[in-house]
Structure formats: structure tokens, C-alpha cells
Amino acid sequence: MLSHRKGAAADSRSGFRWRQGAGAGLRGRLQGTAGKRIAWLPTLAARRQDALRTEHLRFVREAPRGGVLHCFVLDCSGSMLGGQRLALAKGLLIALFDRASAARAEAALVCFGGAGATLRFGPAVPRWWNERWLGPVGGGGGTPLASGVREAAQVLARSARRKPAQQRWLWILSDGRSGDQPARPRHADEVVFVDFEREAIRLGRCRALADAWGAALLTPDELIA
């Protein structure tokens, strides 16, 4: 999962490292002409369900001098308990926090479910992050997405005041089983929705909100691979 192998390519915008060999053919052709590295997360978001084409490609920008904050918003509602979705989301978070720690990036975790949302960690550079810490985070109740986004917006706003030059990423891990339509937090430089919806008949609310916000949209499988 989200391998740490030495051959992985670094994405300086996100502070994360991506698996070696992903899109190697396209990358090789383009590096030979423009000398730029592909930023795979925005590229996958632009591709959506289409075959990868040149116009989908997005490139790595210069690393931000003020550092990076990754604010993760985890849906802990009852619907995430079905199909082990919450367990999968926790596994992804462990890997993402490990990457933030290795890159010396700050991270924060907001959990929402039931009646509201809670800031569970950060913002801080993670010193350690493992399954024992995340295991007690339970699920159940409704999906107060607006509360989760509002709590994350406050985290991002405080970060913007404390470190104006910092680049701020907002990650929302949810199945979108909510009727809430919150506004995009204005201090989020980049937004990524990780869509856990797997029902045969899909509501598509994560996709709709990602479109409205101009955000990236990935499935858990795309993020892992």
C-alpha cells in the first residue's frame, strides 16, 4: 500500500512519494522534451474515468517554501461501517500520515459522524502514527459532512494566520452519504475527495461536490495503485 520504495518518484507539491513505474512511458516522453515531472494526483483527478491522454497531464510545481499541511477529514458515520470501508480508510490514513512524517509535512485529522465533528490530531508533524492509535476511532450515526468541513476550515484558517506561506491540502475520505452541500474552505489550496461509495446504485455526491469545488476525485483503489 502506497509503497516507500527507494525508486518512487517524489511529488514536491504534496510532500508524498508515488510508486515507481506509474505512467512510465508518458513520463519518459515528456521529460525528454519539457524536463518536467508529472504530478500524478492532479493528473488522475483530471483523467477521471477516461483513458490517460496528454491533455490530462499536470506537472509538479516548485516545492512551497512555507511547508505543507495535509488536513484529513474522515467520515466515521454508520454508512462507512458497511463493507469495511472505515477500516480501509484507516489503513489509508496510516500510510498517508507516515508519508507526511517522512516529508516533514504537518498533518491534522478531523473525524465526523453522529452529531458532529472533532479535531483528533494536529496540526503537527506526526512523530508516530500506527494502528493502535487509530483503532479506537469508531463509527456510527449520521453523516454531518458540513460539520466536518467546518471544523477543517477552522484548522486551515488558523494555519493560514500562523504560516501564510504554507501550502494547505484538504483530504475528505467519505462515501458521500450526506445531503450537506458545504462551501469549499477558502484556505484550502488543494482539495482531494477519496470516494468510498460502492453501492450498486450510487448517489454520486462526492463527485458532485468535487466538481463544484474544482477538486480532485479518487477512489481508494486509485490512491493505493
Rank of each mutant, 00 (worst) to 15 (best):
N130W: 10
L93N: 01
L81I: 00
W128G: 04
A103F: 01
W133C: 01
G78A: 12
G114T: 02
G113D: 11
A108S: 15
F121A: 13
F121L: 15
W133R: 10
R132Q: 14
G135H: 08
A117F: 10
R132D: 12
R120I: 09
G82C: 06
L92F: 05
L93V: 00
G83Y: 09
A115L: 10
A115Q: 13
K90R: 12
G116I: 08
G135K: 11
A105I: 13
R127I: 10
D98E: 14
W129P: 00
C111S: 14
R132S: 12
G83M: 11
R99L: 15
R99W: 04
A95N: 14
A87K: 10
R99K: 15
W133D: 04
M80L: 13
R104W: 02
A124F: 02
R99F: 07
L96D: 06
S79V: 01
A89F: 06
K90N: 05
L109V: 07
R85D: 05
A102W: 03
L88D: 12
A117Q: 11
W129C: 14
A95G: 15
A107E: 03
R120A: 14
C111I: 09
N130G: 15
K90D: 05
G135A: 14
R104D: 10
S79N: 04
G91T: 02
F112N: 07
W133M: 11
R120K: 13
S79H: 03
A95V: 09
G135P: 00
G78P: 01
P123G: 06
A117P: 08
L119S: 03
T118H: 10
A100E: 06
E106H: 14
G91Y: 03
T118N: 07
L109F: 05
R127T: 13
A89I: 06
G114R: 11
G114S: 12
G83I: 11
C111Q: 13
S79W: 01
S101E: 05
W128H: 05
